[in-house]
Amino acid sequence: MGEKLLELKDLSIDYKIKDGYLSAVNKVNFTIDRGEVFAIVGESGCGKSTLAHSILRLLPGGNEIVTGEIHFKDEDLTLVDQERMEHVRGKEIGMIFQNPLDSLNPVFRVGDQIEEALLLDDMSEEDAYKRVIELFKDVKMPDAEERAKSFPHELSGGMRQRVMIAMMLSRNPELLIADEPTTALDVTIEAQILEILKQMKKEFNAAIMLITHNFGLVAEIADKIGVMYAGEMVEQGDVFEIFENPQHPYTKLLMKALPSGTKNDGRLQTIDGSVPRITEKKPECRFANRCPLADEKCRTENPPMEWISDTHYCKCFHLGEEEK
């Protein structure tokens, strides 16, 4: 599709904990082109949010160690100074958060919170207000003028997420990071939000990095998928390839865990266990303890990146094998 917008090279993030480190993200690589939607899928606790926050350097600060490179356009965001970073945030990369309920400041009117962002760009207050109303119409906010004067607690979850989206689109960023934008919302609102995102992509040719654990959402909107497990990108590829031909045992299990059919088709499939906390980096496949195909090799060696096509890779020793 063209020009490279964001490229992560061997990005690792470790949290310092009481005695040692917690590996939240380990050697993740991917690129997002202009106008492309890249979806990152994985269970809770696999490092997706940490990864997303690290791009804008929004991690809590103090106890994390970020190594690797984050190339955005032609600079490495891990190296730029604070001032430049403030300019990138909102203006070049926008971010929508998981929980719209507490992502807005409770003591300011939502319209003012969006205006605050717009006013960073030499805009008169009058123009900023007009733009807010315009944005509210773009995100299909009912009664735009009225709602701009509301406080966050007076709005429903869906409306608050619309406010967030309006806020983050207000300065026309080239990349939008959406961290589980619909997790806290119900299904009908989810569909509407999805529609808004699609439209934004078409209208502004914005690239979107979508973080989710919802394969339905991915199928609807994504161009590329990265599957994350315990901080590692275990499989990555074109959306059609992954859906048609998932390679990694984890990806396959995730897809099986999707609800389909009716209740008469039996119990929903689950993956036993949960994402492990990795406090020690040793050669092993991080999925080995839950993997139906795991053998001795998986527990003692790092699986290599196996390329299945020029857009699809998978980190596993057992490509092509079926579950015993």
């Binding site: 804008l56 971010m95 958060f97 507490d102 300065r171």
Partner: peptide
Amino acid sequence: HEKYVTTAYAKGLPR
């Protein structure tokens, strides 16, 4: 530690 503080940073406000 409130999320709205992260939001404030994310929209590009200076520290």
